[in-house]
Simulated scan of single mutants.
Amino acid sequence: MSISQLDAFRGGDKLVRIVGHRGARGLMPENTLIGFEWTLSMGIEALEFDVLLTKDEVPVIVHNHHLTASTTRQPDGQWLPDLEPAIAQLTYEEICAYDVGGIDSNSEYGMRFPEQMFLSNIKVPRLADLLRLITQPRFSRAVLMLEIKSDPHATDPKLTRTRTVEKVVQDVRNTGLSHRTILHSFDWEILAECQRIAPDIPTSFLTQLPENDDHVGEDSSSNFGKHLQNAASIPDLVAQAGGQLWCPYIKDLAAKDIERAHQLGLLVITWTANDINDIENAIDLGVDGIVSDYPGRVQHALLSRGYAWMPKPLENQEEFPRFPGAAAL
């Protein structure tokens, strides 16, 4: 556990880390540079986001394996029709023709996030764009929980996994940010490739038991949980697979599993906690960190207990830079 980026996800006495989910999806357009910059500028050090490869093998930050109708506008400003093109079938240049700065408030997905800002002229970012953003001195403490998605429609899944991991790791290494990145996935075969190709970068194992309902408007991850259904101890499986972090779904949290994970030396970061009762329960159970679309809700829950989400700065160490003018907000 000597790898430096793990410390940014490590909890402690009255310390629970906060991870901004897709930036801060509840408030800002998800998986966008402006959303990431806003979240970091408000003092959230860790980001969780999703990466896929385009047709021309450019790693881009997108959650679903297709452009999503409820969050994508065409060049004429109209919402994308239901026939949603696959990311793997579009070049990066073709993807740049679309605007992902808003959410359709009349869609089922949009109804989940009525407070999200509506922006225009926002493009799907490349992974390299976000990596360059956090090389700025003001974001020198930012860390990335980089989720690599598994393409269910790949004609050669093994080759696709390998090429995706290779391209992602290449981008991370090109910006010198291996020490600030964690590789993260539901697909444990992808994580095995991560360990083979980049043994110096920690791996984070996402889990969701298959009995949970899928989330409206999002690609399902339930297929990846089938092997966990009758497992005696999921943390033991994660440790045996070489993971350093275990990331269980918020509805699957159990005290005995968190205790066991900590006994095994795993950090426990739960996703995605938006409801205040879920947030409070996660804190009670002793997780190391909480992934949320609403980082502010987690902040207030922690503050009400006298907890923090960042350790106190060392002597002569500056606090995390904030958005210009934040003191006046």
Rank of each mutant, 00 (worst) to 15 (best):
R141S: 15
R141G: 14
R141I: 13
A142G: 03
A142I: 01
A142T: 04
A142V: 01
V143L: 05
V143G: 03
V143R: 07
V143W: 01
V143S: 07
L144F: 08
M145L: 15
M145A: 12
M145G: 07
M145S: 13
L146H: 03
L146K: 01
L146N: 11
L146F: 02
E147A: 05
E147Y: 02
E147K: 04
E147C: 06
I148Q: 01
I148T: 05
I148E: 02
I148R: 03
I148F: 02
I148W: 01
K149Q: 06
S150P: 13
S150T: 15
S150A: 15
D151W: 07
D151N: 15
D151T: 09
P152E: 08
P152M: 05
P152S: 08
P152R: 05
H153C: 15
H153A: 15
H153G: 12
A154H: 00
A154I: 04
A154M: 00
T155E: 14
D156P: 01
D156A: 11
P157V: 08
P157N: 13
P157D: 08
K158D: 15
K158M: 12
K158C: 10
K158F: 08
L159W: 06
L159A: 15
T160C: 10
T160S: 10
T160H: 10
T160A: 14
T160Y: 05
R161L: 10
R161M: 10
R161F: 09
R161N: 13
R161C: 10
R161Q: 13
T162S: 04
T162K: 12
T162H: 13
R163S: 07
R163C: 02
R163H: 06
T164D: 01
T164L: 03
T164Y: 00
T164W: 03
V165R: 08
E166K: 08
E166C: 04
K167V: 01
K167H: 09
K167I: 00
V168N: 09
V168W: 06
V168T: 13
V168L: 12
V169N: 04
V169K: 02
V169G: 02
V169R: 01
Q170F: 07
Q170S: 14
Q170Y: 07
Q170W: 06
Q170M: 09
Q170K: 12
D171E: 15
D171Q: 14
V172M: 07
V172T: 12
V172G: 09
R173E: 07
R173V: 04
N174R: 13
N174E: 15
T175L: 14
T175K: 11
L177I: 04
L177G: 04
L177Q: 11
S178D: 08
S178G: 11
S178K: 04
S178A: 15
S178P: 03
H179P: 00
H179A: 12
H179T: 10
R180L: 07
R180A: 14
R180C: 11
R180W: 05
R180D: 10
T181N: 03
I182E: 04
L183Y: 02
H184M: 02
H184P: 00
S185R: 07
S185C: 10
